[in-house]
Measured scan of single mutants.
Amino acid sequence: MEVRTIKVFTTVDNINLHTQVVDMSMTYGQQFGPTYLDGADVTKIKPHNSHEGKTFYVLPNDDTLRVEAFEYYHTTDPSFLGRYMSALNHTKKWKYPQVNGLTSIKWADNNCYLATALLTLQQIELKFNPPALQDAYYRARAGEAANFCALILAYCNKTVGELGDVRETMSYLFQHANLDSCKRVLNVVCKTCGQQQTTLKGVEAVMYMGTLSYEQFKKGVQIPCTCGKQATKYLVQQESPFVMMSAPPAQYELKHGTFTCASEYTGNYQCGHYKHITSKETLYCIDGALLTKSSEYKGPITDVFYKENSYTTTIK
């Protein structure tokens, strides 16, 4: 009895394709271990004539594949690729409408935090270190965002349907971005203890939790000093293409032309909904596939993004 075979390709990165001759009487799992086709788990399936010449994702289970996976995804987590594939199996079914010149995501599976993050990423200057993220990001900007969303979920250790947080998501993504040249110098002034300067680099240099107003941050924000008295913390120097200011959701007025974009969060910790506000020729609110415009805006804002380049204080 002759062994019926077909020729397929296996890959971990969709760049390096490895030619395989597979036995049609055995499952993919018996031949390769966990195997995925377009995100779908085909591990328990036997090869079919229609699979001839198709590319299958496999887990990096030998040295060659491990090197290829690390170079593309910059992670050695053995569960990463499987999590990416199972997320992709959902995100490829989502709709990605162009809204006001940006790629958004039609609401499904509690994905409003991903839509808000995706919209924000198209408006701030950011370059990702893992080629996987950078490639998928370019495709997302062009309207094909399924891979990018699935990668975000995998890097953030999230599953489809789980509630997510924009600030946490951005923080994970910033860790995989090139923020080497970003720098922030802060000064804390206390009447009792004097003053202390701190220099922050990388992710810490672009994120701040405690106030939404970048102007206020430049002037000074009140913080408790270690001595128990009130101290003032203010920005001395900022070198970065953008800054992200966050605070627990509270009524906040966004003035046209003073910011790049913002995240609105309605609801409580267990259950809520994100919308995205962007400042173009007027203010726009993007909620999944829905767009509304207004000249002014007041609502429960939790993150505001500002364009920056270089700032030095005039406070002496």
Rank of each mutant, 00 (worst) to 15 (best):
K7V: 12
F9W: 12
T10G: 09
D13G: 10
N14R: 09
T19I: 10
D23E: 13
T27W: 11
L37M: 13
A40S: 12
D41P: 11
D41K: 08
V42W: 14
T43F: 08
P47A: 12
G53H: 11
N61C: 15
T64P: 12
T64R: 12
E68M: 07
E68A: 06
A69G: 08
E71M: 06
H74P: 01
T75K: 11
T76V: 12
T76R: 12
D77I: 05
Y84M: 04
M85T: 07
N89G: 13
H90T: 12
K92C: 10
Y96W: 04
P97N: 07
V99Q: 00
G101Y: 07
L102K: 07
S104K: 04
W107F: 10
D109M: 00
D109R: 09
N110D: 01
N110S: 08
N111D: 00
Y113E: 06
A117K: 03
L119G: 01
T120F: 05
N129D: 08
P131C: 01
P131W: 10
R139T: 11
R139K: 14
R139D: 12
A140P: 07
R141Y: 09
E144K: 12
A145Q: 04
A145N: 05
A146M: 07
F148D: 02
C149M: 12
L151Q: 01
V160F: 00
G164C: 00
R167S: 05
R167Y: 09
E168D: 01
T169M: 08
M170C: 14
Y172L: 13
H176V: 05
A177T: 05
N178A: 13
N178D: 14
V189F: 10
T192P: 02
G194L: 02
T199D: 01
L200D: 11
Y208W: 03
M209E: 07
T211E: 15
L212N: 00
S213A: 06
S213L: 07
Q216T: 07
K219A: 12
C225R: 03
C227S: 02
A231N: 03
T232N: 02
K233V: 14
Y234I: 11
V236T: 06
A250P: 00
Q251M: 15
K255L: 08
T258G: 05
T260I: 15
C261G: 04
A262I: 09
A262S: 00
A262H: 05
N268R: 06
Y269A: 12
K275A: 09
K275S: 10
E281Q: 03
Y284M: 10
K293F: 07
K293L: 09
S294P: 07
S295D: 15
G299W: 03
G299P: 06
P300W: 12
I301D: 01
T302H: 00
F305D: 02
Y306V: 01
Y306A: 03
E308M: 08
T312E: 09
T312C: 11
